[in-house]
Structures are given as structure tokens and as C-alpha cells.
């Protein structure tokens, strides 16, 4: 069989292991596979924020790690730092901080951000050194590979890969379209 493939779909459903913003019963779920050192993800960051604002409780947003570590030398540690912050209840604060300070992602910066976010910075430093969240990040990554993630950022809207543009209007149109269908 030569392959005509249907659209790529998310193989790992959103669940307990995920970092989630928005209600579980939202009409639409947007999943982003991203890399904290990727300039395109940096560009997507305020776009997603605006889309979240405009859709409010109708949207659930999930971020999963997809660090391209051969290309972005700081991406793996940045992802682990976000997970470490998540273990202390501040994943999203760190997620935002990392994108806003994408130009400074050395370990010392990551630890400094932990301090600024009033996390236990020593614990975060230890967990980075011990690669405590390496497996979690790899699981995110492999779930992305299996789902047809083909670069960063890759978005999935209600489990289907979004192959179109992802400026605010394009994303909103796609999300609203799905949301209408659900209602």
C-alpha cells in the first residue's frame, strides 16, 4: 500500500500528565508542541495568549515539550526547568518567563527565574542537574513524533493537526470552526 494518509492526529490524549489552562469541558482544546528556544514558538506565544483571551472559557490550552536539542542547545534544560517549576505548581509562570527571556536560557538564568518566581530555586537546580524531568520531556517529545509533529510549533485542535497558518485570526477561525461544530 502506498500511503495516502489522513490528517495527523494526536495519539496521546490530554490527561493528568499535562499542563493545562482552561476548563476541562471547554468546547475546544488547543495543544501546542513547542520548544522554548525556538523563535517561531516565541512568536506564537503572544498569539496564543490573545486567542485565549478572546475565547475565554471556551478554550482549553495544553503545552507539551518538543525540544529540538541538536538545533537549540538550551532547549532541553529549558523544558526540564519548566517541568521542575510545574512540580512546584508554577509551570505556566515559568513557561511565560522562558519565552519572554528566550535570549537568556543558560542554567544560571533558569535558576534565577526560579528565584524570581519564588520557587525553591535550589531544588530546581538540583533537579536540572539530576535530569529529573528528562523522561517526562522525552515522553512529550515522542508523543509528538507519534502524532505527526513536524516542527515547532505544531498545533493540534481537538486532536487534529492544524496545518494552516497560526496568526491570531487564522487560529481563531480554526478554533471557532471546531467549537461551532461541537456545540
Amino acid at each position: 500500500m502506498s500511503a495516502k494518509r489522513e490528517r495527523a492526529v494526536l495519539v496521546l490524549p490530554v490527561g493528568e500528565r499535562d499542563h493545562v489552562q482552561g476548563p476541562a469541558n471547554a468546547a475546544v482544546t488547543l495543544v501546542e508542541y513547542g520548544d522554548f528556544e525556538c523563535p517561531h514558538c516565541r512568536r506564537a506565544y503572544p498569539i496564543v495568549k490573545e486567542v485565549q483571551e478572546r475565547m475565554g472559557a471556551r478554550l482549553r490550552f495544553v503545552f507539551r515539550n518538543f525540544p529540538l536539542t541538536e538545533l537549540h542547545l538550551h532547549a532541553q534544560h529549558a523544558a526540564e526547568a519548566a517541568e521542575a517549576a510545574g512540580a512546584q505548581g508554577k509551570f505556566w509562570e515559568m513557561h511565560d518567563r522562558l519565552f519572554e527571556r528566550q535570549f537568556a536560557l543558560e542554567d544560571e538564568h533558569l535558576i534565577e527565574y526560579a528565584r524570581e518566581l519564588e520557587l525553591d530555586a535550589a531544588r530546581l537546580a538540583r533537579e536540572l542537574a539530576a535530569h529529573t524531568y528528562k523522561a517526562k520531556v522525552r515522553d512529550d517529545f515522542m508523543s509528538g513524533v507519534r502524532s505527526g509533529v513536524n516542527g515547532t510549533p505544531t498545533f493540534f485542535i481537538n486532536n487534529v493537526r492544524h496545518d494552516q497558518a497560526w496568526d491570531v485570526e487564522a487560529l481563531l477561525t480554526a478554533l471557532e470552526g471546531v467549537s461551532e461544530g461541537v456545540r
Binding site: D35, C38, P39, H40, F66, L68, T69, E70, L71, H72, F141, M142, V145, V149, N150, G151, T152
Partner: peptide, 16 residues
């Protein structure tokens, strides 16, 4: 002109 292009992606997945 994109990062995370096809070859870069495969490079990451080589171990698999």
C-alpha cells in the same frame, strides 16, 4: 528557512 525542518526533526529522532 524554518527551524525544526524535516531533516532537523529526523536528526532528533535518529535514536528511534
Amino acid at each position: 528557512p524554518v527551524c525544526g525542518d524535516q531533516m532537523a526533526l529526523y536528526n532528533e529522532i535518529l535514536p528511534e
